[in-house]
Design a protein around this nucleic acid. Structure first.
Length: 596
RNA sequence: GGUCCGGUAGCUCAGUUGGAUAGAGCAACAGCCUUCUAAGCUGUGGGUCGUGGGUUCGAAUCCCGCCCGGAUCACCA
């Protein structure tokens, strides 16, 4: 039981005893006591005034009095205006710390359900490399997977690769026309970047042709359709759909290059999937479901043969499900894959990590599944996140303002290296080990920067100011961990006892109590992050904990503490703080070095 | 125009079912390394919580109007 709950229950029975009647939970409001006041938890008296028929101060006083009488763990109380500040005994906190130290992976729960949570994220297009927006998607997906897993769910991580369509044909065509057989090997370029370059090349050529046609007197709209290169691309798509061997061969080759490139980026970010789906294999799914819905009168057909769903009674519009020629659209496929995945996994929840520009899409998808009579339609959840924008606004590939994922990762690691050299921290360490630490630090800066922001908010990234390594950052938290590890290893060298039962009298100052209280909250934070699908809660918690520890570390010596008991307490506490930091950071997909 | 999301310090962001004097970091300035890692710690300055009403003991938080920004409303994905 958490300390807050513990206090709440005692307060409740105190009030019930005083006012001689059962009391609803929501009347007993317990919160953490604010820093500037003495005490651990605070009860707000206002909701109880009707029962007590006394002033706020007097109400606090009588409840405080009663609580002390009821339970010996309530050490004392003070009253300020309508607020009852309750102090728990040292023995309560000593027991709490002992419990935490004896618990394996405190705060993490082993998976207990056989119905998994399916999490789809990343879902890249195979015509260009990943950029900053994808990084947010990937990091959110990774982190939310880990959070769900450690809050007690089975997790299946899936990726749906968008490997077909006109945009893929565009880069294929441009490579065919202008590539001269260039490959990642001959050019020295990473595969996804190489393919992306041809996608850009296509766009340039396309634009030029449009201008040319316009100069000959054609309207813009007509030129966009008539430009030879776009017509060739469309022809290529038709050939692809007809399984033309030559086109398929080219498609396989170029996608292969892209996957090699993606594999590196995924490896850099620490991401992997349990299952990868390809749109080329799923894009025909859903048709039969739509036809079935049509027969059951859930959907309707227009004169041209296209199939629609009418969502006007749900406050939305009519939505196309199948084209007049019988081919499917984006949502047709999503209907199909959702059913396929349900049959495959019988999931408890299906999370789609997708940008907020697709909120409408997922709203529609959910409604359609409901109309089709799938009782699990409520299990579909769109984890919608805001876009990452530059100070000037949206990233635009045409203007070359897209922040490339690989470049950014490299820059972060470079900055970390530079920083480390300036500080001279790793001078005496083996080069390979030092590089590994530097990699961890650079990536931590990037990952934490992205994940500390509430997913649903748009966020700004300023490439010029880059990402900090001081203050509320990943490296700050890593640093705290490294310092603790350093103290612990010195303690071991000195032959100090590092593990043992903590007695209440070992606790010597309020900072120690604050730290025990803070680490004891970790399990609730993990649960809250899982329920809200929000890694930022973990990030903020880890920061607060590291900050609190740094103050403690600054103010109190550990190894030179003369009192053996207090020294043991401080070592145990430090050890537990380091462990909680490590686990919290793991939930964010961030590694923590033992020294830096 | 309809729907959804956001607006908190110069900048980037916290603020957990409504609670005490709204908090961090960055940037600026001033201090702290013969002492467990100074990627740290301490202090100073910086706010009509977009705006106007309402609900109540109490509102950044809940309700309504308005202003600003973003997304979306495709036989694109």
């Amino acid at each position: 039981m958490t300390a807050e709950k513990f206090v709440q229950e005692i307060a409740k029975s105190a009030a019930e005893k005083l006012y001689n009647q059962p009391i609803a939970d929501n009347l007993i409001q317990i919160q953490k006591t604010r820093k500037e006041f003495e005490g651990d938890y605070t009860m707000v008296a206002f909701p109880l005034l009707r029962l007590s028929r006394k002033s706020p101060e007097e109400t606090c006083k009588e409840i405080g009095e009663q609580m002390v009488a009821l339970n010996s763990q309530i050490q004392g109380y003070n009253v300020i205006k309508g607020f009852l500040n309750i102090t728990l005994s040292k023995s309560y906190w000593a027991n709490t710390l002992n419990f935490i130290a004896q618990t394996n992976e405190f705060g993490f729960i082993k998976p207990k359900t056989d119905k998994p949570v399916v999490i789809e994220f990343s879902s890249p297009n195979t015509n260009k490399p990943l950029h900053l927006g994808h990084i947010r998607n990937n990091l959110l997906g990774l982190s939310i997977s880990r959070i769900m897993e450690k809050s007690g769910k089975q997790v299946v991580k899936v990726n749906l690769v968008n490997d077909r369509g006109i945009h893929i044909c565009k880069s294929m065509l441009a490579w065919q026309k202008f590539g001269n057989g260039e490959t990642p090997e001959t050019s020295g370029k990473k595969g996804d970047h190489l393919v992306g370059d041809y996608y850009v090349k296509f766009d340039k050529e396309y634009k030029a042709q449009i201008e040319e046609l316009k100069a000959k007197g054609m309207s813009e709209d007509e030129a966009k359709v008539k430009a030879p290169i776009i017509q060739e691309a469309q022809e290529m798509l038709r050939r692809w759909e007809a399984k033309d061997p030559e086109v398929i061969e080219l498609w396989k080759t170029m996608n292969g290059w892209v996957y090699q490139g993606f594999d590196k980026t995924y490896a850099d970010l620490g991401i992997h999937f349990d299952k990868v789906y390809y749109e080329s294999e799923t894009y025909l799914l859903g048709k039969s479901v739509v036809m079935d819905g049509l027969n059951r009168g859930i959907f309707f057909k227009k004169e041209d043969g296209s199939v629609w769903v009418d969502l006007t009674s749900d406050g939305l519009d009519q939505k196309l499900l199948l084209r007049g020629d019988g081919t499917s659209v984006y949502i047709t496929q999503d209907i199909g894959t959702a059913i396929q995945r349900y049959n495959e996994f019988k999931f408890d929840e299906h999370i789609y990590v997708v940008g907020n520009e697709q909120e409408y899409h997922f709203q529609v998808l959910k409604l359609i599944m409901k109309k089709l009579g799938y009782d699990w339609s409520d299990a579909l959840f769109h984890l919608s996140y805001g876009m990452v924008q530059l100070p000037e606004g949206k990233m635009k590939s045409r203007e070359g303002t897209v922040v490339d994922a690989d470049d950014l990762i490299e820059e972060m690691i470079d900055t970390a290296r530079q920083m480390s050299e300036e500080l001279g921290k790793l001078d005496d360490v083996d080069h390979g080990v030092a590089s590994e630490v530097i990699r961890m630090v650079g990536l931590a800066a990037l990952k934490y920067f992205i994940l500390k922001v509430d997913p649903k908010k748009n966020m700004t990234f300023n490439p010029k100011e880059s990402i900090d390594f001081n203050g509320n950052t990943g490296p700050f938290i890593q640093y705290t961990h490294a310092r603790i590890k350093s103290v612990l290893s010195k303690a071991a060298e000195a032959g100090f006892q590092v593990k043992g039962i903590i007695k209440p009298e070992y606790i010597s100052n309020p900072k120690e109590l604050d730290l025990i209280q803070q680490i004891s909250q970790f399990p609730e934070i993990v649960q809250a992050a899982a329920e809200n699908h929000n890694p930022a809660l973990i990030a903020n918690y880890a920061y607060e904990l590291a900050k609190e520890y740094n103050q403690f570390y600054h103010d109190h010596t550990i190894l030179k503490e003369p009192d053996e008991g207090t020294r043991l307490l401080r070592l145990t506490l430090s050890d537990q703080v380091a462990d909680v930091i490590k686990r919290a950071m793991w939930l964010l997909g961030i590694e923590v070095p033992d020294r830096m």
